[in-house]
């Protein structure tokens, strides 16, 4: 635990400036989102867009409500991923090989650190979203938010850290990450489009998901923990070879 705290402290010292900037941006966007949503009832741009689209999920209110959370996840998460390449470039991993710590602990700490950043920023994001919905007087789709957060954690953290280690934190890792996210988004879009053209009732599926959100969330959390363990083991193995 002592080592884990020291490793995290090192990253926080290293990223102090970026973290302050990211935190200010997130708070700023959240305040903006809340104010924007608060003005919804008085007839703002969101109202106009909603009238045009007439689609609950595509309102500008939702967009501005979700934005702070998404920004949190992307900015803070990406910043912490960056420490993988920094650690390699400045020889930190070589230094850690002189310490009485295992590579697995280093990988688990890094995973835990990034997971914690995502969770904390996710919480800020959810608070932002809830605030936006509350001030705009709209129904809150909490289940959607939790499921989305679970899937994001699964995709963004646990699958991608080994990727960053594998590519030694180089630009290729970022490219691969965005490529993977792009593919994932494409697959999701394709599924939606196919379901719209086929007999599959998307609305029914969404209703099922919402009705069973608690169970699904628990299952996803369990899957996340399992993937966390596998991810840590794979990362440690890659990291061990990299240092050699």
């Amino acid at each position: 635990m002592r080592y884990a705290v020291a490793f995290i402290r090192k990253d926080i010292y290293y990223l102090r400036k970026q973290l302050i900037i990211a935190a200010c941006s997130v708070v700023g966007f959240t305040i903006f989102g809340v104010l924007f949503c608060g003005s919804y009832k008085y007839g703002n741009l969101a109202k106009l867009l909603e009238n045009d689209c007439n689609d609950t999920y595509m309102t500008a209110t939702s967009l501005f409500g979700v934005l702070p959370g998404v920004l949190c996840l992307l900015s803070l998460g990406v910043i912490f991923w960056g420490t993988v390449s920094n650690d390699r470039r400045n020889g930190w991993y070589m230094f850690t090989s002189t310490l009485p710590v295992s590579k697995r602990l280093i990988a688990v700490t890094k995973l835990g650190e990034i997971a914690a950043v995502f969770v904390i920023s996710g919480v800020i994001g959810v608070v932002g979203i809830l605030s936006c919905y509350t001030v705009s007087g709209r129904d809150i789709a909490v289940n959607d938010i939790f499921i989305m957060a679970d899937v994001l954690l699964f995709l963004l953290i646990f699958l991608l850290l080994p990727t960053f280690y594998f590519f030694k934190g180089r630009e290729t890792a970022s490219f691969f990450t965005f490529f993977l996210m792009y593919i994932t988004a494409d697959i999701a879009t394709a599924v939606i489009m196919l379901s719209m053209k086929s007999d599959l009732d998307l609305q029914k599926a969404m209703t099922f998901l919402q009705d069973n959100a608690a169970v699904i969330s628990f299952i996803l959390i369990a899957v996340n923990i399992a993937v966390f363990a596998v991810s840590a083991a794979v990362s440690a193995k890659i990291l061990g070879k990299d240092v050699r």
């Binding site: 290293y14 650690d87 400045n90 020889g91 230094f95 002189t98």
Partner: peptide
Amino acid sequence: KEDIAVVFDELPFPDML
């Protein structure tokens, strides 16, 4: 390893510290 200190040819600490 607690009893070993290593000095490398390059500084292995983050340079923003």
